[in-house]
């Protein structure tokens, strides 16, 4: 009779956490930060179709780093949960907090009960009536939730970027300033694999940008792309002629 090797629970958890952390660290970063008119999402993402930033509900958006198929699965589940709640209760009863709780439960269960944890880190953001009411929840692969204030950075260089955001982010930044700060910090992160510390200048084509705009009626989520993005960054538009803003 063969005896299985004994592995202590501490070791199992540690191995899983290391595995997930390594997966997340490989990816490019995402920054979510508050500006005077709402919440701004900036990701380094060359794809126009595979989004890291998405709308969940009227006032709620989702940003993620890590493995695409895993966070996409969570995003779709979040849209379903939010739409179900809004349909069976009322649109106003869909909150970022309940969604963050659901994600935390789900990620926690997946982390403890399955062999392979999700290699994702997500932010659930809800824009409120005033900056004081904005909510930012950061969720990690093991289901831990953090209630963040002002800004969140996730992904490969999250630590370094957060450090700089702590120094440079202030309340009441306008949209263009907040966007330039985020883009500069994303560019300051070394690109994985190339090893140089040289800061890069990210162009609009390398960015995925969206806002939860406090002033918009009902659906507050809007993507910023094309000429509008170039204008905010103060550079020439290098992308094909797409509309300034589009839903979804």
């Amino acid at each position: 009779m063969s005896m299985p090797f004994y592995v202590s629970p501490e070791q199992v958890i540690k191995d899983k956490a290391d595995y997930a952390r390594k997966g997340i660290a490989r990816g490019r970063s995402v920054i979510v930060l508050q500006y005077s008119g709402g919440l701004l999402f900036v990701a380094e993402n060359r794809s126009r179709a595979l989004h890291k930033i998405s709308e969940i509900y009227d006032r709620i958006a989702f940003a993620a780093v890590g493995k695409y198929n895993e966070f996409e699965n969570l995003r779709v589940a979040g849209v379903r949960l939010a739409d179900l709640r809004g349909y069976s209760y009322d649109r106003r009863d869909v909150t970022g907090r309940s969604l963050a709780n659901a994600y935390a439960q789900t990620l926690g269960t997946i982390f403890t009960e399955t062999q392979k944890p999700y290699e994702v880190e997500i932010v659930v953001a809800e824009v409120g009536a005033s900056p004081h009411d904005d909510q930012l929840y950061r969720l990690t692969f093991d289901g831990s939730v953090g209630d963040e204030h002002g800004f969140v950075a996730m992904g490969g260089s999250a630590e370094a970027i957060s450090e700089k955001l702590r120094e440079r982010w202030t309340e009441g930044l306008d949209l263009a300033d907040a966007l330039r700060l985020a883009v500069e910090l994303l560019g300051s992160a070394p690109e994985s694999g190339n090893g140089t510390e040289e800061p890069r200048v990210l162009t609009p084509a390398q960015l995925e940008v969206a806002v939860l705009d406090r002033e918009r009626p009902r659906r507050k989520f809007r993507r910023i792309q094309g000429p509008k993005l170039a204008e905010l960054l103060g550079v020439d538009d290098d992308s094909d002629d797409e509309p300034d803003e589009s839903p979804g």
Binding site: Y89, S98, A102, T109
Partner: peptide, 24 residues
């Protein structure tokens, strides 16, 4: 994944995480 059924409750049951349909 979890198999608990929740109607908009606290955790996401398997129906939420199932891939495929984009119809509510």
């Amino acid at each position: 994944s979890t198999v608990r059924r929740s109607s908009g409750g606290s955790s996401l049951s398997s129906a939420f995480l199932q891939a495929g349909s984009s119809s509510f």
